[in-house]
């Protein structure tokens, strides 16, 4: 099964199916969610979404870089970068489905045991 790419259209469809607004309005709301998040980040705010993750802006200092092709040194100016930290819930969801771990999460939430992964 080759991985596919989910876009705004898929999110719009999901909102349309789930909430029963028109497709147009669903699309507008998907866009509003993204633009509200972007605006907050541009203002320098952190965006925290429980059980998904948090986005924050980090200031990076200047440094010398190198053009990997020509070997030439190029200055990299100070800049801001966006950092996404996934929540534990998201990380667990991804590993549950991807590698088929079963159990364990309810008890301690520790890393899965190394030996007994059921096939």
């Amino acid at each position: 099964m080759a991985p596919s790419t989910i876009t705004r259209a898929h999110l719009t469809e999901a909102v349309y199916q789930e909430v029963g607004l028109s497709r147009n309005e669903s699309a507008d709301l998907v866009e509003s969610v993204l633009s509200e998040m972007s605006d907050a980040l541009v203002r320098g705010e952190m965006v925290k979404l429980s059980s998904f993750g948090s986005f924050s802006v980090r200031q990076k200092g200047p440094r010398m870089g190198r053009n990997p092709k020509s070997g030439e040194e190029v200055p990299i100016l100070p800049r801001k970068v966006l950092v996404f930290r996934p929540s534990h819930v998201l990380k667990e969801r991804i590993n549950d489905d991807e590698l088929g771990y079963s159990g364990g999460s309810e008890q301690a939430g520790r890393q899965p045991p190394g030996s007994s992964a059921a096939g």
């Binding site: 099964m1 991985p3 596919s4 790419t5 989910i6 876009t7 705004r8 898929h10 999110l11 999901a14 909102v15 789930e18 909430v19 669903s26 709301l29 998907v30 969610v33 993204l34 998040m37 972007s38 979404l49 059980s51 998904f52 966006l82 996404f84 998201l90 969801r93 991804i94 549950d96 489905d97 991807e98």
Partner: peptide, 27 residues
């Protein structure tokens, strides 16, 4: 509330299937 959670649930589900989520202009 349902709209917002649907969006992030969809993204979570897509990632757990191994899919990629591409939102042009955002990331």
């Amino acid at each position: 509330e349902r709209i917002v959670s649907t969006i992030f649930d969809e993204i979570t589900e897509a990632l757990s299937r191994g899919d990629r989520v591409e939102l042009r202009g955002f990331g």
